[in-house]
Simulated assay, not measured.
Amino acid sequence: MSVTQQYAIDLYRAAQRGEAAPPAPGLHEVAAFRELRDYRRFKAVVAGRPARGRIRAALARRLSGRRLSGRRGHPAGC
């Protein structure tokens, strides 16, 4: 059963019972992702780590390390 079908069933049940309609699927996802991002930034600041750019910096370190090891003639895994 898809999300849309489940939502249609929930709408029907709410109408039969005289209850308020449930929120549409995906309506609050953006707000939930923003809250998760803010929470992770807060935890990083409390732990004394940079709050922004951590993933990009980690990827840059990893990619630059592979390029450097390849220039020396060593395989990337060594």
Rank of each mutant, 00 (worst) to 15 (best):
S2H: 00
Q5R: 15
G48P: 04
A58S: 12
E35H: 07
F42N: 11
L11S: 00
G53Y: 04
A15Q: 06
R72S: 09
A14R: 08
H28M: 13
D38N: 12
I55L: 11
A47R: 10
S64I: 02
E35D: 13
A44W: 00
L27V: 11
L36H: 13
A31T: 09
G77F: 15
G73K: 05
Y12V: 02
R71M: 01
P23M: 05
G73F: 04
Q6E: 12
V3W: 13
G77W: 13
P25D: 06
R34P: 01
G26E: 02
R37S: 05
F42D: 05
R67C: 01
R40D: 07
R67K: 10
G18E: 06
R62A: 08
R66N: 00
A20P: 03
G73Q: 00
R61C: 02
Q6V: 03
A58L: 06
R49C: 06
R56Y: 10
V45E: 09
P22Y: 01
R54V: 15
G53M: 07
S69V: 12
L36S: 14
M1G: 13
D38H: 10
E19W: 09
S69Q: 07
R62L: 01
P23C: 07
R34F: 13
L68F: 00
A60M: 13
A24I: 11
R56N: 09
Y7C: 01
G65R: 03
A51N: 00
E19C: 08
L59H: 10
L68Y: 03
R61G: 00
A31D: 13
R66I: 07
Y39Q: 15
Y12Q: 10
L36N: 14
G70Y: 05
A60N: 08
V3Y: 12
R52V: 11
A15Y: 00
Y39N: 14
A60Y: 03
V30R: 12
G48C: 05
A8L: 13
A20D: 10
R66E: 05
P50D: 15
A24E: 15
P75T: 11
T4E: 14
P22D: 06
A44Q: 06
P23V: 04
L68E: 08
A21I: 02
R67T: 04
R41C: 03
R40T: 10
R67I: 08
H74K: 14
V46M: 14
V45Y: 03
H28V: 14
Q6D: 12
A51P: 02
S64R: 01
E19V: 06
L59I: 10
A44T: 03
R62T: 06
S2F: 05
R40A: 12
P23F: 09
A20I: 01
A58V: 06
P50A: 15
Q16M: 12
G65M: 06
R13T: 09
V45G: 01
E29W: 08
D10H: 07
A8F: 09
L27D: 07
R49I: 11
A58P: 02
V45P: 04
Y39C: 10
L36A: 15
R13E: 09
R52P: 00
Q6K: 13
K43E: 13
L63F: 14
Q6G: 06
R17W: 11
E35F: 08
Y12P: 01
A58H: 09
Q5K: 15
R66G: 02
G26M: 09
G48Q: 03
